[in-house]
Each structure stands twice: as structure tokens, then as C-alpha cells.
Amino acid sequence: MPYAIETRQLTKIYRSPWGRRRLRAVDQLDLRVQQGTVFGFLGPNGAGKTTTIMMLLGNTRPTSGSARLLGLPNGSLEARRRLGFLPEKFQFHEFLTAEEFLELHGRLAGLSPALRRQRADAALAMVGLEDRRKQRLRQFSKGMQQRIGLAQALLADPELVILDEPTSALDPLGRRQVRDIILRLKQLGRTVFLNSHLLSEIELTCDEVAIINQGRLVRQGSIEDLTAPTARVTVQLDRLSPALLEVMGRFGAVQQRNHTEVEVQMWPGAETPDLVAALYQVGARLQAVIPHRESLEDYFVRVVRGDEEVANGAKQ
């Protein structure tokens, strides 16, 4: 089965009109997104996420490299027939009603009249706007506009849905609704490519994420792999003693929280079971050993900062 999205050395360089200044927005990006997964695309502002999405859609031409969607050349009519897209920066034709708006997109997607009606009803119900079908888009709140945008993205029952910041204007209930829609799409075997700053949302919905910074791919992997239990362990004992602190100090940097609890930042290669065994050997009475999983947000900040330090070091 072909990848839902596959890029090879995808690069975009913007040049100023006289070619004196160059901005490498996307730099040799190699992405592979499996079909049927929810894929998070992360990066700080200006990292090149939207440029990448525009290249995937065929709206922006890559300077070099290539991209394929569902095994088809990006930007081809066949590829676009099989994808749905909600842009980050959007303004719809606000003089249309919700129903007219979906009718327009149904026509542009080449759906038959019967299918247009059926899909429009289903899409409006999915985003919870069925009772607003006769209302003009100019009367919609920002959140409602985002939901009708999502409805148009899902209208043609696409195999691949590209969502650029789909929850940025939504309240917690709206975000929950979008999250449920994404999970439902996944159950239906659709692929969702999600660009969002809300890392908690990504963490709850995505199977895999890619982090880009300054146009380059920094990390790609499943959330479980990327945020695997880290080398930080909280140890709770009946009583602490200098001998126990010395034992734990052999495994990592020890930070005493109180007279019964310490946090050990394990050295590279040190293992938690070995620490537990060593503590037993010296007669410690353990109450609890809690390994900590890094949140996606902490991981993201650490990776991006680390990447920037490396990049700055290389420049110097």
C-alpha cells in the first residue's frame, strides 16, 4: 500500500525579487505517513509547516524534491479528488449560507446532486451545525466558521484529510468535538494529517508525529517512542539516609524533595531496576518507585531548543 504522504528531499527556497536574499523555508524534508493513521505535524512558528502543506497540495512549487499523496503526484487532479483540506488562514464566501457553501464545494468536488445533498447533511451533522444550514456564513462565529470549514474538508469523503490548525478558534467543547471527529475518521480508515500548536490535542489523537524546525525534520516517530519513560524516577522510602543517597548518587543526579522522597535523574545507561536492586541490597524500605513519562510538550520544547542550540553552535 502506498504511503498517504511521502516526500523526498522536499525543499522550498524563497528568493527576494532580485535574488539577493534567500529563505530556506523547507529543507530536504523526508516524510512518510502511513495510511489510516493520524499524523501530527509539529514545529514552532515559521518552521515551514504551512509551506510544506502548500507544497503537498500543489499550491506552491518545491524548489527541489518531490511529494506524493496516496501514491499520486502531489497537486494532480486525482490526488486532490481524494483529499480534503482545511487551511489555517481561511475566509469563506460569507454571503453564502452553510448549505449553499457545501453545495458549492460539492459541485467543485464533482459530486452528483443526490450525493451532494446526502454528504452535506452528514457533514453538517458531524460538525454539529445541522440547525444552522440556512444561516449565512457572515453570521457565524469564528469557531462555527472553523467547523463549517471542517465540514467542507470532509464533504467528499476523502481518504486523506489535511487539517491546518483545525482547533485554533474553538472552545474546549468544540475542540473535543473535533478530536472525536478525527478519531472517528481514523476508525473509518482515513488518514489525517494534523498541523496544530495544541500539543495536548496532538498527544490525544495522533499515532505518530514529526517535528520540524527551521524547515528541517528534527524527529519523527510514534508518540510512545518519542515520549518513552525518561531517565527521571521518583523514589519514595520509609526514611532517607546518607548511605542511601550515596547509593542513588551512583545511578544519577539526586534531588531530595523531603525526608522520604527523592528524584533521581538517571545517568545515560543507568536502569531503574538496577537502582531498585541496589537499594534493596543496602536494606532500604521502598514505598514506591515512579518512572516519569515526558509530556509531548516537554519533549517538543526540549527537541526544538536542542536543535536550535546545535544549529547556533554550527553557525558559530
Binding site: N59, R80, P87
Partner: peptide, 14 residues
């Protein structure tokens, strides 16, 4: 500029 074209151009149109 307004962003109305993005959703149109994502459709299977030349």
C-alpha cells in the same frame, strides 16, 4: 490574500 482561494484550489480543478 483573503484566503478564500485555498479551499477552492484544493478541489480537483485546474
Amino acid at each position: 490574500e483573503r484566503g478564500t482561494h485555498y479551499v477552492i484550489l484544493a478541489r480537483p480543478l485546474t
